[in-house]
């Protein structure tokens, strides 16, 4: 009896061999791309010396972190990353919700589809192309602003790419411009899913449109809002590298308002060759980012288990 059961089990396991084989390429890639780099996080605790190799370099404990946090850079890049992301979350979600509500009001189906197609355009193009579009607007000598718009308003030309004070507004605008279409369609799907009977009943009771939006639409999509918000908060330590690196054209004069953790790590590694600082900043980002993901997920779970990621 035991041998039959045993043989049966072996045969059934053999049945799964092709399935396990299918997993191999994907898992091999994840090991290479995602898991091996986790061991590489230890670089942050080393004094990298290429002659000794990455793995043979000397351990130096927290020295890299000490250097990093002694500089004013650490505070600046943390502040910029957090503030930009906080503004992006609030304005980005607010704008997307408002646009989704208005889109849902539009009765003409053709117009509605046209608007949707058009406002998604910025989402489809690379940030390099975005940097071209911004450059066409802001170029000091030939830009639309300095050559056409500002003279028409009687304002002196502005050297946009060397004046840090304008960039918080420019980057926020560009971020909203690029992302509103995508987020708005997510919210639109949620709004379309609301049962029409609620609105019917509200209309019979004489509720105005504005009241319907406040008392039906917003409360019904609140779970989606909270989920997207917490997911974004979980990623608040990660900046959009392309936005902060490409759109200001990597202009050194603007670092005060454009340097974020991701651009700092990149410049440290690729341009300054300062692997110690760069890897310490990267480690700081990975670990704090991970903790924030865990915290925001556990908050989501408390509110609504269905919406939690895990």
């Amino acid at each position: 009896m035991a041998t039959i059961a045993h043989r049966k089990k072996r045969r059934s396991l053999r049945r799964f061999v092709p399935l396990y084989l299918m997993l191999v390429p994907g898992l091999a890639y994840l090991v290479l791309n995602n898991y091996l780099p986790l061991f590489g996080l230890s670089i942050a605790f080393k004094n990298i010396d290429y002659s000794k190799g990455i793995w043979g370099s000397d351990w130096i404990g927290f020295d890299n972190f000490e250097y990093l946090f002694k500089t004013s850079d650490a505070l600046l890049i943390t502040r910029n990353t957090l503030l930009y992301n906080a503004v992006f979350i609030v304005l980005g979600l607010g704008l997307a919700i408002a646009v989704a509500i208005l889109l849902n009001e539009i009765k003409n189906r053709f117009a509605s589809r046209l608007y949707q197609s058009v406002i998604i355009l910025p989402f489809l193009i690379s940030i390099i192309l975005v940097s071209y579009l911004v450059y066409a607007m802001l170029s000091t000598d030939t830009g639309f602003f300095n050559k056409t718009l500002l003279p028409a308003l009687g304002i002196e030309p502005i050297a946009w790419y060397t004046e840090p004070k304008y960039w918080p507004y420019i980057l926020t605008f560009v971020h909203l411009w690029k992302g509103v279409g995508y987020n708005c369609i997510v919210f639109l799907a949620a709004i379309i899913g609301i049962d029409g009977e609620y609105y019917e009943a509200a209309r019979l009771d004489g509720a105005s449109k504005w009241l319907q939006i406040r008392k039906i639409t917003i409360p019904m999509i609140t779970p989606v809002i909270i989920m997207l918000m917490l997911l974004a908060i979980g990623r608040i330590f990660y900046a959009d590298f392309g936005l902060f690196y490409q759109v200001p054209l990597n202009s050194g004069a603007l670092f005060e308002t454009t340097n974020v953790i991701d651009t700092y790590v990149f410049r440290g590694l690729m341009q300054l060759g300062d692997i110690g600082m760069s890897s310490a900043a990267g480690f700081y980002q990975s670990v704090v980012g991970f903790v924030l993901v865990l915290i925001s997920n556990s908050i989501v779970r408390k509110i609504n288990k269905e919406n939690a990621l895990f």
Binding site: L32, N34, G40, I43, F290
Partner: peptide, 26 residues
């Protein structure tokens, strides 16, 4: 295995270690 896949969404090594893997290991 599903968790192994999922975990990659939560935590990643970032630029420097990934750069090292793709230049030193492979």
């Amino acid at each position: 295995i599903a968790f192994v896949v999922f975990f990659t969404l939560l935590f990643n090594g970032g630029l420097v270690p990934t750069y090292m893997v793709y230049t030193q290991v492979l």
